[in-house]
Design a protein around this nucleic acid. Sequence first.
DNA 1: TTTTTTGCATACCAAAAGGTATGGTCTTAT
DNA 2: ATAAGACCATACCTTTTGGTATGCAAAAAA
Lengths: 195, 195
Amino acid sequence: MDTRMRILERVYEDMRVKGFQGLRADVVMTSMDVTKGALYYHFKNKTVLGYAILEEVIQPEYLKPYLPLLEYEGNPVSFLQSILSGIKLTTEAKDLMFGDPVHNLALEMSPLDEGFRKRLEIMQDSVKDIISDALYRGQVRGFVVDRAKPVQIASFFQAMLAGNYGMAKAHLNKRVFDNNLDMLGEYLDEFRVGV
Amino acid sequence: MDTRMRILERVYEDMRVKGFQGLRADVVMTSMDVTKGALYYHFKNKTVLGYAILEEVIQPEYLKPYLPLLEYEGNPVSFLQSILSGIKLTTEAKDLMFGDPVHNLALEMSPLDEGFRKRLEIMQDSVKDIISDALYRGQVRGFVVDRAKPVQIASFFQAMLAGNYGMAKAHLNKRVFDNNLDMLGEYLDEFRVGV
DNA sequence: TTTTTTGCATACCAAAAGGTATGGTCTTAT
DNA sequence: ATAAGACCATACCTTTTGGTATGCAAAAAA
């Protein structure tokens, strides 16, 4: 892997726990076999580094679980529930302290830097659009009840996920975390057609 | 008001947008008619200042809406819905960028400082207990359906609220914010006995 | 083969951050 | 009345932060 990408990945690791403001990029460098020279060669300043991490590391991971939904032919409610199950399975108790990178950055940086805010907004909107479109197509195909409001449900789903990640950062309780995901899954069942 | 409390209030204002790490207490001082001398007379260091803001400014405000629930005799579902309405009414569009102070701090400081994490956990648990107790009493009194799980609903309610505040920081969209609150209100209706 | 450019290391640097040391005034207890 | 302590301003001080300036080896272009 090239140096630039190694820097992004490594700094991202640190940003997950320190946040962007608490991030000390040069300190992170010394924990690799790289120095500040490399850092400031590839990135003009700290803010640009942050944007790059957001776009090149965080965004792809953030969108990944939802992309298959674009071509999914089955019931979108089932798909969303499978995402929740996936989160339960892949999130270990020791990872709860990290939270969701997108939500973390949104809370920390949105009021401080319009570049961050806008990028985060776009990312969240992308996911919201994917979900709401899938729900709409699900309605057309008879998988989702007509009274369901796709955009609102998508937004609710996202907010609940984000909130659950956030609460877990203080509580570090995997059982509560999982339970909230289950509740969200049951809530979605309301909008499923048939049994 | 005494200097100590004035400092707490004023620094809190800044912390709402900068976060704790981004907070520059001495800079804030210069915007009052107070200097660092006063600051470090009342607070040993920045961390202690943060704890004081959390305990003396944020906590009371955070608990306030839920305290009446301790002695409320009516349907707790209605009460929770009235809290949601209250949030809709009192949260102006321009305030969306601030988010929820407790959730903000939880995301930023929980992984970094156990003193913050523990205090935040206790605060969130307090509210969760108030809500779940009220729901339980509601079941006993026939206001809330038996299948409702008070603790889980309380936790879900909190996570959703936190998540909604968080999403709004990037989106700054009052309509979406309100809509999510409405959805949560409708969700609670599931657990109401009768019509 | 020279020359230029790329990729990084090393050394330096100004400002900011967080805090301390000192001293003065104003109140309170004696 | 006076000694003691509370309260706060001013001036300093150290470390950290976020960079810049320079140099140099390897790769690529001419």
